[in-house]
Design a protein around this nucleic acid. Structure first.
Lengths: 139, 139
DNA sequence: GTTAGTGCAAATGATTTGCAAACAG
DNA sequence: CTGTTTGCAAATCATTTGCACTAAC
């Protein structure tokens, strides 16, 4: 029987030109972007990568925890390189997309405790704060 | 010029059979459901309502604050009648969909203050806690 | 009667999938 | 070589929109 060391960990991806380009793009620019936006970025930088590949790669990176994924209010999924392994949430400008990472121990604990109080297990949560950053505010 | 009284308030909807059916369905069953699910419910109850109308009505109700809308993890938007006018969030069972309303003043204030501290205005937020309710927990 | 509301079918837009060709190990 | 990865095109899926039609007021 083929019992090598195969846990629930990923089967290691191959090193391809496009994967490198995607990783680099994510490492270079800081903000969140959708798969399509990242794809445009790459094409603009003369990296020929298929949109499909961008989707597949981002999904894989997201699952492995290498990138943060969140859903924008319009429903598009956006990604960004995860700087910290620490759990955090985002404050996002509704207009320009400027993003700030926010976190608060107390809030984390509250969600956890509240869920447990109601008999829930294996709890995860998602907090998103939207607003207009001062650059985008009317005056 | 046609300058009647037109504020930012809604132009009052007309009372139609389908709107009534939708409102009733929302009032009767308690949980969250997607537009498509609600549509099925209605057809099952012999109410002939077009899917388009369900979408349009739910959207209107959501904007007027009569129903709560939230996005499921899979991206579908789900709605439910808003019992309280008080701002609250949801604790949702990942497996069976059982939902509990949760709220916490302190958390509300934290999101507000944090956003303002970063120069954001017109702040809204969205908190969702997912987990397995005890009925769905492994043991 | 007018206008808002309805519903079908077609359009949209993000994401996924089938499948053959290209490539890493 | 041999299994992955890629990428195009076509398929999905939720939601929206065009437009002719019907019902409210």
């Amino acid at each position: 029987m083929t019992t090598h060391q195969e846990g629930s960990s990923s089967p290691r991806p191959k090193a391809t030109r496009q994967r490198a380009a995607i990783a680099q793009a994510l490492a270079t620019a800081p903000g969140f972007r959708s798969a399509q936006e990242l794809h445009d970025e790459l094409r603009a930088a003369d990296h020929k990568v298929g949109l499909t590949t961008v989707y597949r790669t981002l999904q894989a990176l997201s699952e492995s925890g290498a990138v943060d994924a969140m859903r924008r209010e319009d429903g598009e999924t956006i990604y960004r390189r995860c700087d910290t392994q620490i759990h955090h949430h985002h404050l996002v400008c509704r207009s320009c997309g400027y993003t700030v990472e926010i976190e608060n121990e107390a809030v984390e604990r509250w969600t956890q405790r509240t869920a447990e109080k109601h008999g829930f297990e294996d709890v995860t949560h998602d907090i998103q704060v939207f607003g207009l950053c001062d650059a985008c505010s009317p005056e």
